Amino acid sequence: MTGASRGLGREIMRAALDAGQTVVATARSADAVRDGFEVYQDRLHPVALDITDAEAAKSVAAEIVKRFGKIDVLVNNAGYAELGFFETFTEAAVRRQFEVNLFGTMNVARAVVPHMRKRRSGLIVTISSVSGLVSNAGGSVYSASKFAVEGWMEGFAQELAPFGVRSLLVEPGMLRTDFMDGKSASFGSILIPDYAEAVARYRSFVDGANGNQPNDPKLLAARIVELASQDKAPARLIFGEDAQQWASEKVDKLREELAQSADRG
């Protein structure tokens, strides 16, 4: 799994270890993964990995297969959020968002999937977001990267299905992790007076929500581990009442727009 040093990734790692699984957990710092988990040292194998390095991802996957013989489950979790209004981001910041959330996730999948195809078995768990289904002001850049992940995995899953490789897209609502603080989130750096008031309100919302998110990452982690152990995991897991509500409203809106389009012939 990737992104195991904090947040949801750390909880998934803990849940898998508590369930008796052997976990190869990656992050940019292996020491950050290991810290506090020494009791699991016989089944936890921390590895340093920057997911934007495609060759490093291939090397790690090959070493795992050489040591353990197989990879049963890939949890593609690593990512971060650019939060703010689109025009306040530099081109470099937008590209970095995609480099990590989309292309980094692709790098790891590209490294692991050949081993799964060879065995005709495996499960890819991709941590997306309800923001991969619904976008809003202040989330356009982050949502764009997650919409891309959703489109890629939805098609890729169909390509892999004939080889016995399964896919689970996880779309959480707001989780009580450090995702919205400075460790994981980044904000636009360009000051535009027209957006000043709206940006201030959005930053106030983010600051107020940080640490007060409604959903427990431990519950989601346990659910992911439970589903990963089943032979028939669902294609999607939309987690949290907020995510369920936003996704339902999006579906209703799409139905309304479909009807309106049909009426106009």
Results as ranks from 00 to 15, higher is better:
residue 51 I to S: 00
residue 63 E to V: 12
residue 83 L to T: 07
residue 69 G to Y: 12
residue 46 P to S: 08
residue 70 K to N: 09
residue 43 R to I: 07
residue 54 A to Q: 11
residue 67 R to T: 15
residue 60 V to S: 10
residue 63 E to N: 14
residue 51 I to T: 07
residue 55 E to K: 04
residue 58 K to F: 10
residue 61 A to Y: 08
residue 65 V to L: 13
residue 64 I to A: 09
residue 78 A to R: 02
residue 75 V to Q: 02
residue 42 D to M: 15
residue 59 S to G: 00
residue 52 T to M: 05
residue 77 N to T: 04
residue 54 A to T: 07
residue 69 G to L: 05
residue 42 D to Y: 12
residue 48 A to D: 03
residue 65 V to W: 03
residue 61 A to E: 11
residue 55 E to R: 08
residue 41 Q to R: 15
residue 61 A to G: 08
residue 63 E to M: 15
residue 75 V to N: 05
residue 45 H to L: 03
residue 48 A to C: 05
residue 73 V to D: 00
residue 76 N to D: 10
residue 53 D to L: 00
residue 52 T to R: 11
residue 62 A to Q: 14
residue 68 F to K: 09
residue 77 N to S: 05
residue 63 E to C: 11
residue 57 A to R: 07
residue 68 F to C: 07
residue 56 A to Y: 10
residue 46 P to F: 06
residue 44 L to R: 00
residue 71 I to D: 03
residue 82 E to Q: 04
residue 46 P to T: 06
residue 64 I to K: 04
residue 40 Y to N: 01
residue 42 D to N: 14
residue 74 L to G: 07
residue 80 Y to F: 15
residue 46 P to G: 14
residue 43 R to M: 01
residue 77 N to W: 01
residue 76 N to G: 03
residue 54 A to Y: 02
residue 67 R to D: 13
residue 49 L to Y: 01
residue 73 V to H: 03
residue 78 A to K: 02
residue 79 G to D: 09
residue 81 A to G: 13
residue 40 Y to H: 12
residue 82 E to R: 07
residue 50 D to M: 03
residue 47 V to M: 11
residue 51 I to W: 04
residue 76 N to C: 10
residue 62 A to R: 11
residue 77 N to D: 09
residue 57 A to C: 13
residue 70 K to Q: 13
residue 47 V to W: 10
residue 74 L to E: 00
residue 41 Q to K: 11
residue 41 Q to M: 01
residue 40 Y to E: 06
residue 75 V to H: 06
residue 44 L to V: 02
residue 52 T to G: 00
residue 47 V to D: 15
residue 62 A to F: 09
residue 83 L to R: 13
residue 47 V to Y: 06
residue 59 S to K: 14
residue 67 R to I: 13
residue 81 A to V: 12
residue 62 A to W: 12
residue 75 V to K: 01
residue 52 T to P: 13
residue 76 N to I: 05
residue 70 K to H: 14
residue 51 I to M: 04
residue 51 I to Q: 01
residue 77 N to E: 05
residue 74 L to D: 05
residue 55 E to N: 02
residue 68 F to M: 09
residue 50 D to G: 10
residue 58 K to V: 02
residue 75 V to D: 01
residue 72 D to H: 15
residue 43 R to Y: 07
residue 44 L to N: 01
residue 83 L to Y: 00
residue 43 R to N: 07
residue 65 V to F: 12
residue 78 A to G: 06
residue 51 I to E: 02
residue 77 N to F: 02
residue 83 L to Q: 11
residue 43 R to T: 15
residue 53 D to V: 09
residue 51 I to N: 03
residue 68 F to I: 10
residue 45 H to I: 13
residue 75 V to S: 05
residue 43 R to D: 11
residue 48 A to V: 08
residue 83 L to S: 06
residue 45 H to V: 14
residue 62 A to E: 14
residue 74 L to M: 00
residue 48 A to T: 07
residue 74 L to C: 03
residue 59 S to Q: 12
residue 76 N to H: 08
residue 46 P to M: 08
residue 67 R to K: 14
residue 40 Y to V: 03
residue 61 A to T: 09
residue 41 Q to P: 00
residue 75 V to M: 08
residue 56 A to M: 06
residue 62 A to M: 12
residue 52 T to A: 09
